[in-house]
Amino acid sequence: MLRERYINLIVLALLLVVPAHAYVTGEPFTVTLATRAVIFALAGVGLNLALGQGGLVSFGHAAYFGVGGYVMGILASHAQNYEPILQVPFLIEGTNAMPVIWLVAIVMSALLALLVGALSLRTSGVYFIMVTLAFGQMLYYFTISWPAYGGEDGLSIYVRNQFPGLNTLDPIQFYGICFVLLCAALFLVDRINKSPFGLALNGAHQNEERVQTVGINVYRVRLVAFVISGAITGLAGALFADLNRFVSPTMFSWQISGEIMIFIILGGVGRLFGPVLGAALYILLEHFLGGLSEYWFIYLGAILLGVVLFAKGGIIGKLAKREVSHDG
């Protein structure tokens, strides 16, 4: 029987070896594909905290992904044009420094998640799904009608943002940045999952009342988890925009929310590495099946159906031969 931690190590090793090999053998496109997978995995790790650990079926995580993307787009475009974002009452200028952009993306998406979570967590079930979806769609239509930043056409950034000491235009170096951030997020989520906070979040997934009877404010626990979840997904959005050097309202669309959820379901809901494996698999399917037919989603649907019906713990759950301890 393969144990989950060995599977996680194998996934991690593949994420190191495959792009490195592709880079050495002169296949930068494969490195870009791997970067895309790692960024999507990061978004999935964010959602997995809310969905897998907390049982919060958010169908609006594209909102945080999009906010992260637009933070990058707005800051970088102003840095590019040498035009301040705001002059009155105080001066705010653009920047092309990645760490600053990440920090702003994390803060802005966390603030949005705080607002969305504060309202949506007062509901449950289908109403929770609808409230989260509604916020995502509101932002989608807002950005479409926001001509200052490209409206429906989106916003192009001509030069990738900078990270001190690295050449971010080199695919493998940019990949390295994304990989390190993914590892940091995985470490953070793992620590959270094992903390009393994470255990309470998991317990509330099973029975809210029972958690309250041991003196824990379930609403607050869920809200904090939702905010952290949104912040991680926002960081992924900023990286995604940097990868493409382009942001558009599509980043806010419900399809993105659905895709992030698919990564998690494919890999294993509540599994630490579930979204990582899921995102990698999704990118592989998109690349190979997408080359065969433009209707590749039909095959993806069939695979997803198979996973849901025959592998409740996702692919990692099936390989580990043990249902997840944290998926309820």
């Binding site: 255990l199 998991n202 029972r210 958690v211 009877t213 041991v214 003196g215 824990i216 309820g328």
Partner: peptide, 19 residues
């Protein structure tokens, strides 16, 4: 509570640690 109702998908240690 009646019927015990532990957090079934947490370990014994985690059940105690969470509370």
């Amino acid at each position: 509570p009646e019927g015990r109702r532990c957090f079934s998908n947490l370990t014994v240690y985690e059940n105690l640690y969470a509370s």
